[in-house]
């Protein structure tokens, strides 16, 4: 069975999408136009992440991948988009040879090659969306625009944060986020605002936002394993929080798919243990400042309430140590 105590973190800090910009960052609809519109990124952790993702998909296929039978055309649209993005950005790592509908995709990092007939799912070992998604480390969730909402019709999810492809399949954006209403300081229903914003996203105009959370000594937390990770959260102490608690950042990208009339959610999840925050002093300061000021309701919503105090205490001790060192250096 898949080990959740995986020692995985971002090693090239330049690839870590650090989420905080001001010191009172909370919830906001901080959507920005996506600058690098190509979703494929190769980091030092690429191979580790892709292999771990595939292991999860193989071990728990029903939990990690869901699709409806009517989505086949949408799946090919996705496959074509991501393969062409990969080839365009990293021609040394990926190749796509088209001979009419006979396509060959090569992944030179993993030394893999697959020839298939575009439009014929029987020529691939997995469904087209699943197959294509297995070459990239992100999670891919396709939410189809029907009436004025979005419905999860395909999901490949290997980094869940209180989410499950199995459970959430077929649900609307509102059903996934409701019935817990989350209201901003000025009383806006944030879910409603985000949904309306997503409705306005056009093909050719991708957007992005960053979401963050903490993760206590796990790769991911889904509903299926709640009995396992829920009790574990209280095992966090100020002494072990530096290693076991990781800042979990989810860089989200939104693409309107023109044939599917859907929004493709691309979720790039990266982790940084709290102890590694010291590698960049401003990251440490911002994170400490944000975490010690989290409202109760938000900590509950994010599922971090049971170990947030221990995490903040860890950061406080480090901060105190750093300040003492600075003082000693000055005096010395």
């Amino acid at each position: 069975m898949f080990t959740q105590e995986l020692d995985f973190k971002t090693t090239d800090l330049n690839t870590f999408p650090f989420p905080f910009r001001s010191d009172n960052y909370r919830y906001s609809n901080d959507l920005r136009k996506l600058e690098d519109t190509n979703l494929v990124t190769i980091t030092p952790e690429y191979e580790l992440q892709v292999r771990a993702k595939r292991r999860l998909l193989d071990e728990q296929p029903e939990v990690r991948y869901q699709s409806f039978p009517h989505t086949m055309e949408m799946q090919w649209e996705f496959l074509e988009m991501v393969f062409e993005m990969a080839v365009e950005k990293y021609p040394q790592h990926f190749e796509l040879i088209k001979n009419g509908d006979e396509w060959t995709f090569k992944n030179n990092i993993l030394k893999e090659e697959q020839t298939f007939t575009f439009g014929d799912p029987s020529t691939l070992p997995y469904e087209p969306y699943d197959f294509a998604g297995r070459h990239f480390h992100q999670d891919f969730v396709l939410m189809v625009n029907r009436e004025d909402n979005f419905y999860l019709e395909i999901g490949q999810v290997s980094y869940a944060a209180l989410f499950s492809a199995h459970w959430n399949t077929g649900m609307s954006f509102d059903e996934i986020h409701g019935p817990v209403p989350f209201v901003s300081r000025n009383g806006d229903n944030l879910i409603d605002r985000v949904r309306k914003f997503l409705l306005g996203i056009n093909p050719g105009e991708p957007w992005t936002r960053i979401n963050w959370n903490l993760m206590a000594n796990r790769w991911d937390v889904n509903y299926e394993t709640m009995d396992v990770w829920e009790p574990q959260r209280s095992l966090i102490t100020p002494e072990n929080a530096g290693k076991l608690v990781r800042l979990r950042v989810e860089e989200q990208k939104f693409y309107r798919m023109s044939r599917s009339n859907a929004i493709l959610f691309v979720l790039n999840t990266q982790f940084l243990p709290l102890e590694d925050l010291q590698l960049r002093q401003e990251w440490f300061d911002l994170t400490y400042s944000v975490l010690q000021d989290i409202p109760e309701a938000m900590a509950e919503y994010k599922g971090i309430a049971p170990y947030l105090p221990q995490s903040v205490e860890y950061l406080r001790r480090v901060d105190e140590k750093l300040k003492n060192q600075a003082l000693q250096t000055q005096e010395g």
């Binding site: 009436e147 056009n202 093909p203 023109s258 009339n261």
Partner: peptide, 13 residues
């Protein structure tokens, strides 16, 4: 031209 966009889709129900 822009990408196609749809404000007048067929209703699935």
């Amino acid at each position: 031209i822009s990408f196609p966009r749809n404000y007048f889709p067929l209703n699935p129900h």
